[in-house]
Amino acid sequence: MRVLATITLLVLPAVAADVIVRRDGPVFRVAGLGTTEPAGGWSAVFQVHVGPQDLPPVMGTYVTEGSEVVFKPRFPVSDTVDCRVVAGGTTIVFPGKASSTEPSAHVRRVFPTAWKIPANQLKFYAEFSAPMEKGQAWERIRLKNSVGETVDLAFLEIEQELWDREGKRLTLLFDPGRIKRGVLPREQTGAALRAGETYTLIIDQEYRDAEGVPMKQGYFKVFQVEPEDRAFIDPAKWEVRIPRAGTRDSLAIAFGESIDGPLAQRLISVEGVAGAVELGAFEALWRFVPEKPWEAKEYKILVDTALEDLAGNRVGRPFDVDVFERITVRTDRRVVTLPFRVPRK
């Protein structure tokens, strides 16, 4: 931006009557207005505008430096917009430069990575390669059925959008009203996903990144829908592969079904052991590689009961329980412990 300002300065040293306007980095300098502030303030004789004529001027502060009046915008004027300086009856335009950034953003992956998912699938996570612009999800993301019709209101369209802090991962919740049995939206329009059908999740190439540039390519995920999963997660049914002492072999858990990937990464750990988690087999497999070799002793796998499978069923508690009394279990976080012993070599 500094470079641009310097060039502008060389190309457009604007001289009209005795008024000289300069764009100097983020600030605008005008000579020839005198040093006595008019009764209406400097803005009465010196304003910076972007956009059409009838819009209010850019917000900022004025100071005098020597013979110049200096306007410092509250925010640096975007270098992609035309900017008009109106000073002492003269108008000078500093043209914005075209955005020349090459598209580079793309969708890295979507959780679940499985291509068979239950009809009561609760959410997708779309991971982008770069921070994305907020506020366009419900225009740029669609779900189509096998004959190419868009599934109406498949996702819960919350205008705040559920992003992570970096703006790289978007959570798409299926409208829970269309998953829960016996409630109005589902009775009226049915479930968003029907078992036996094939669907395509489409993220448009026009999805803009945080720089306003569309993606390099669009994203498609084709998946097949299986019957609803209304069984809770039962860690007692998991298969645990125990590593050997003295190695950094992975500790592995086969869940027997796909689990919510981000939750599996965050909510399953080995007590007191640092290491890295990887997921495999469409998130049906959790692998933990310790930083230091395993010792021949007892360890504990800690499973936060907030862990969910693809349909939002939790540890010991299905997603969808119909009787009030049945769910009076507190949703306080609890941890299920799975002890295991690493044998001697």
Partner: peptide, 18 residues
């Protein structure tokens, strides 16, 4: 939205009102 963009020295597509 356009007026806010103008005051903040940018284009309307860069403004979000929460």
């Amino acid at each position: 939205n356009e007026k806010i963009a103008a005051v903040l020295g940018t284009s309307a597509d860069q403004i979000q009102i929460a």
